[in-house]
């Protein structure tokens, strides 16, 4: 044949390469590729899990921040309610105290008034007695002018 082509040797070369291909494919290519694919799968799985965890965390964060906001609002409301109630209560206490104070003052005034009238009632006989004593003293000790002037005074009082 031209160029010394030998079909038998061509076939021998083919057989040689087929054996080599089979050996390299099953001994090297397939196991290494399997390992690479496995690792790729593992990495993808990790990435997927990380993404899921991250999204879950984001969701939780949103949920908790919402809860926190509502709790803060609730606290604010409770605070204002408590303040209002306290103010109301204070006002009530103040009113009550004022009323009580008024009552006490009223009572005190009435008592004072009563005392005053008592005093005034008690004062006239005493004054009479004092005037009698004084008159007696004047009558016996001073002049008739004094007696007259005293009589004038007592007449004026009556």
């Amino acid at each position: 044949m031209p160029l010394n082509i030998d079909i038998q040797q061509v076939l021998l070369h083919m057989l040689n390469f087929v054996i080599l291909f089979a050996a390299l494919y099953f001994l090297l290519y397939k196991p290494v590729k399997k390992f690479i694919d496995g690792r790729e799968e593992y990495c993808k799985d990790i990435e997927k899990r990380t993404k899921t965890t991250l999204s879950d965390a984001e969701e939780l964060k949103c949920e908790y921040s919402g809860k926190l906001e509502s709790a803060q609002e609730e606290i604010k409301k409770m605070k204002s309610d408590a303040a209002d109630e306290a103010e109301k209560e204070a006002d009530e206490i103040k009113d009550k105290a004022r009323q009580e104070a008024g009552n006490i003052i009223e009572k005190a005034r009435a008592e004072a008034e009563k005392e005053k009238s008592n005093i005034l009632n008690g004062v006239n006989p005493e004054i009479c007695k004092l005037a009698q004593d004084a008159a007696e003293k004047i009558v016996f000790e001073s002049t008739s002018d004094a007696y007259d002037s005293f009589l004038d005074i007592t007449d004026g009082d009556e």
Binding site: D6, Q8, L28, P31, F35
Partner: peptide, 30 residues
């Protein structure tokens, strides 16, 4: 058995060496 071109002997030698290396790698490295 038969008389062949030196290239075929080279082919057999190269294949044998590569297969041995592949076996070693498969057993000890992979």
């Amino acid at each position: 058995i038969i008389q062949v071109n030196p290239g075929l002997i080279s082919a057999f030698t190269v294949s044998a060496v590569l297969i041995i290396i592949a076996i070693i790698l498969r057993i000890f490295v992979i």
